[in-house]
Nucleic acid binder design. Structure first.
Lengths: 272, 272
DNA sequence: GTTGACAACTGGTTGAACCAATATTAAATT
DNA sequence: AATTTAATATTGGTTCAACCAGTTGTCAAC
């Protein structure tokens, strides 16, 4: 097993409905369509996107399922307040879409401790429930990660670390933990695809992994938590510092060219 | 504001696509369609459900979006391993569908501490960030809840408690926490609709709420966490006991009439 | 002013035809 | 006989046009 052989970022998905879905989602997340606003009728929207009603409907259904809009027979489609109704799954597209970097930073800041709690919880269960196969898998990935770390390829480490987390969660042998963790893992997956340089790599990374493996070997739950918390608080702290400085930097540029994002416009017409 | 005026359980949704979606989802969650299996083609399935391809496709899309199936152009639709790819949103339909009560109990057991962590996290932030309006709202709901508690209507308390949690999360003033908490809140909403009697009500419930409000008034984060943890560990403990006894009871009945859930069957034909 | 039929929206459903990706089969080639 | 290649069947993807079904607003009748 090599660390390199994971599929890269998903293909750009030549899907028409998916494309329209992403476009509309972007409009909503960017604030160009605000909560309570009504979308044009399906017939009109289909015409604007140069497609037919069925395909257009497929896109709207996706919006509906992610709670970005509400569809009511006879009444049309209205935009939802996604800040209130969304889930962690919205994080990646929101990070890509939102023009308000300060808000993005805030959300990440609050998300990091939540993620840490999930990891801690998974670690506890994994320490208790991991079998020989799980530990072997974690050991293998750890070795690969350390090798990759010495070579110094952040993107490679990112993918490898994904696998490590995946193995950790498998080791917890808990459907519940898997379901709780999945949205975080997916968000992480998108994030390292888009901003591979943003993720902090500490010199203590290999040691952290080794300490953790040792805790597994000794069935030492508290030690594992201690090591985990230590490392993540370090890394997350640095990440938050980076975010803060990026925010203040963005703040300077902001006054220059930011259009006031007038809410009424629906610039979805295909440029012919 | 009255505690009663929330909309009851959602209307049975006369939607054809939604109905088919739920039926197929049930087959998957019940294990009658297992991971890796292929669904019949869209044309065939549409015929079986007595509908047309477009409507049928809508149902399949919903399955796809919830990661219950994978759709590939030219290859058909295959069932996914939802235990691996699912999220917390699957909890309510899984609880309703799964014939394996022991597994359900396991999942709930692991989900409860995760939920507690989310509540604790939200509480910490709420203590720090709640403004006057938030506290007033929490106070109002607390009063209503205590009144309802004295009257002794579990369903009513369930709905009121939903509101209480909602207010708590609003008070945290964090989009991230809202997004993390939403799947739990929704699961909770479904659960008290279906099993209103299962939820444990402790005599200490009113005191717990009052203590919490006091912690809010004093900005005492640690006290709030202490109170919260105390109450939930009590309640969750009792719930887990109830689950355990229900499991052993179900275990006795199990050997009698359980069909081995042969995986090949797709009993989706409309009985004419 | 109130009521009630009607018209004009809206999304929901239908069926048939065709396009595009894949899998299978049969034929041609080696 | 094994391999390659071409034809074909099967799958999902897209399009079209019509109609059904809830909702809202209008306007005439009362």
């Amino acid at each position: 097993m090599s660390i390199e052989d994971s599929e890269g970022p998903a293909p750009p998905s030549t899907n028409i409905a998916e494309t329209i879905f992403r476009d509309l989602r972007g409009l909503i997340l960017r604030g160009e369509l605000t909560s309570g606003e009504r979308l044009p009728g399906e017939r009109e929207l289909a015409a604007k996107y140069g497609t037919n009603r069925n395909t257009l409907r497929e896109a709207v259904r996706k919006l509906e399922q992610q709670r970005l809009v509400t569809v009511r027979h006879g009444q049309g489609v209205t935009v939802t307040d996604f800040r209130k109704t969304g889930t962690v799954e919205l994080l990646p597209p929101f990070l890509e879409s939102s023009p308000d970097f300060a808000e993005v930073a805030h959300i990440i800041e609050d998300m990091l401790p939540a993620r840490l709690q999930v990891i801690e919880f998974a670690t506890r269960r994994a320490i208790r429930r991991a079998d020989k196969t799980d530990i072997e898998r974690l050991t293998d990935i750890t070795e690969l990660l350390i090798t990759a770390f010495q070579r110094g390829d952040p993107a490679l480490i990112g993918r490898g670390f994904q696998r490590w987390l995946d193995a950790l969660i498998d080791a917890a042998h808990s459907v519940a933990i898997r379901w709780v963790a999945n949205p975080y893992l997916e968000a992480y997956r998108h994030l390292i695809d888009r901003f591979p340089t943003l993720w902090v790599l500490e010199p203590t990374f290999p040691k952290h992994l080794e300490d953790l493996l040792e805790a597994f070997a000794n069935n030492d739950e508290e030690r594992a938590i201690e090591v985990t918390r230590q490392y993540y608080e370090l890394v997350d702290g640095k990440l938050m510092q980076a975010l803060a400085s990026a925010v203040s930097q963005a703040g300077k540029e902001k006054s220059v060219d930011e259009p006031p994002a007038s809410s009424k416009r629906l610039s979805v017409t295909r440029e012919g």
